[in-house]
Design a protein around this nucleic acid. Structure first.
Lengths: 356, 356
DNA sequence: ACACCACCTGAAATCGGTTTCATTCGCCAT
DNA sequence: ATGGCGAATGAAACCGATTTCAGGTGGTGT
């Protein structure tokens, strides 16, 4: 009863629905007087056209699906923010789908997104990896990509032909490792990350390669994996500190893990960076909230979101886009590796806006 | 060409679309042999019914809009997680809309959500407040509520009749303040928050009332507002420390602000809690990542999300629900107010899962 | 007076499903 | 043989918009 349609408007205005539609979209000239009449009714009933009906016909929904593993890791909200900002004025809306790294959820959400006719999908499945991703999900994703444009963000599915946007994680890990070496560290550990995931393996490869280039090497007992959580950082750091010989620095797979590492180091009365230096990865808001602030690798998360969604938009408009877009990571040097920096030097950009 | 419809299936199976639809939904008996034929074709073409067409007819989309001010404040992702968990198995999807506290964005998103025919809306607009919210947005929201079920989460619009789910912020602020007083503090400051927003005013009211009950009172120069950011915490703490006389404890409007306060205190060589105790609000992941960990008030964010969405679901199903649902806040005592707690006592629930 | 065009409008098809209504068919009881 | 019933199916209406196509009207140029 509260729902007004073009037919209701047309009837009351004593015109046809075609005319109402033309007033709505300006697709053809309409006599000023009838336009006024129609507009008045639209205003009167607060009429808003039903997007489902329109989308059904036009085959465009103005809707994008974003699939991420974990919304509680601040990295992903930042990517989301970038995507949203890039498309805000175009009137897109976003389905946010959190999978918790669960393949069943992923599969379920992909089906739902297809059913709801999204125009495109941003897939930030950290789990995508040749060895780990089950063949059926890979297949499913590829099939889906034949119907709906998909952009893989910071992930890969070797042997497939997805469009991808990602930062050069190898380079990022190299920057981090070289930074520690340049500071004089010779004994460096690596903490965190699931061993099946690209985000872990890439970093380890670059880590060991950079050590080698500098005539150093990693020690198996200092390579402590797990997952991407704070708790993992705490536990692995406990284990590390229990060893007879300790590294003087650790490189963590992400900021979450770094937070755990710092907490545990602090609990053991260690000073950071004097006793142990810590480098993270992602440059999320967490990096700004630890004491001392965390040296980390910026993934330029907002830009990543913006760029990804721009690529997706090109695909949606059937324009040609290069398959891969790579962003350069940036090393953010803060007090978890270099003592005595003043706070301003920390490049904590998120803290510089005025307040109140 | 890749898009298969019920008509295509029907033609190839030599049945009518009605039959295909019946196979799809099991709404009427279909002979086993024809069912098989249809199912085989559905499998062959990976057919999936078009949700737009279905929703258009059924007037249900299985879609919910969630409007939040800031996705980069970890509190909101936690609420979102709760909502998603509660509705996952029902196959709902969520439009996530971030407004940055911008009324224009809010208005724009509300229109979009209506156009896209969401079944309901969770509105977490921290800005909703009798004095501050512009009358037209208030009006808009109320009009919308006549067409679409809306639940206000942690917000209010006095004089209106929305369904609301919220935690008792007054009680939360009381718990925080009393905790500091019980620890022996007599000089307590308040930092952060925009003065127009309920989340600020409620806390201030409870703060001052609790002081009064204990025979204490606030000092205007120790009430330093601003916004809800880390940067605000830093700046206001600088100002506070520049005063000739300082409080021995501060209560912050949220965890973000607390982080800034702790950072600045640390930069000035102050020890927490010995020189200054800090209490936050929200119990986000940030509270676990500071050194020392932050004593804070848990808003039980995931439960808040779950509960809100449950209420919303009731409304969608036109069942009767009580207008207001209130959650009790919980004080989480950690090392930013009490020295020498061991880490396990911190109740950092998010750190207790196994890893790897 | 006639042809032409620009402007304005409406009827009807369309998008891809679901659902109602009517019909056919086979089977069983009387 | 016949009436009745339930299972199985198809035709057609419907949801709410957009768009094509086909007029109708009025003004202008010759």
């Amino acid at each position: 009863m509260l729902d007004v349609t073009v037919y209701d408007i047309a009837r009351e205005a004593e015109v046809s629905v075609s005319t109402v539609s033309r007033v709505l979209n300006g697709t053809a000239p309409v006599k000023a007087s009838t336009r006024q009449k129609v507009l008045a009714l639209i205003e009167k009933y607060q009429f808003q056209p039903n997007g489902l009906a329109r989308s059904l016909l036009k085959k465009v929904t103005g809707t994008i699906g974003i699939v991420i593993p974990d919304i509680n890791n601040p990295f992903f909200p930042e990517v989301f923010t970038g995507a949203e900002n890039a498309l805000r004025e175009k009137g897109y809306t976003f389905f946010l789908c959190t999978t918790h790294g669960n393949f069943e959820y992923e599969s379920q959400y992909l089906a739902l997104l297809r059913e709801k006719q999204v125009d495109g999908i941003l897939f930030l499945g950290g789990r995508i990896n040749q060895r780990h991703c089950p063949p059926d999900l890979a297949q499913e994703l590829e099939d889906l990509n034949r119907r709906i444009p998909i952009v893989l963000v910071n992930g890969d599915l070797p042997g497939s032909s997805f469009h991808r946007v990602f930062i050069d994680e190898h380079r990022g890990a190299e920057l981090a490792t070289q930074h520690l070496i340049d500071l004089g560290h010779r004994h460096i550990g690596f903490i965190g990350g699931e061993p099946e995931i690209t985000a872990t393996t890439e970093k380890i490869a670059a880590f060991e390669q950079t050590l080698a280039v500098n005539g150093l090497s990693s020690r198996p007992e200092w390579m402590l994996l797990g997952d991407f959580s704070i708790g993992c950082g705490m536990r692995r750091m406990e284990e590390l500190l229990a060893l007879p010989e300790r590294p003087t620095a650790v490189f963590c797979v992400n900021d979450f893990v770094s937070v755990g590492v710092i907490k545990t180091a602090f609990d053991h009365g260690l000073r950071i960076p004097a006793d142990i230096a810590v480098v993270g990865f992602d440059d999320t808001v967490l990096a700004a909230s630890t004491t001392p602030e965390l040296t980390t690798i910026s993934q330029r998360s907002k830009e990543l979101g913006e760029t990804s969604v721009r690529v997706l938009l090109q695909l949606i408009q059937k324009r040609r886009v290069r398959k891969h877009t790579v962003l350069e990571p940036v090393l953010k040097i803060r007090r978890s590796t270099v003592d005595g920096l003043n706070a301003a030097a920390g490049q904590l950009s998120q803290l510089s806006e005025p307040c109140g």
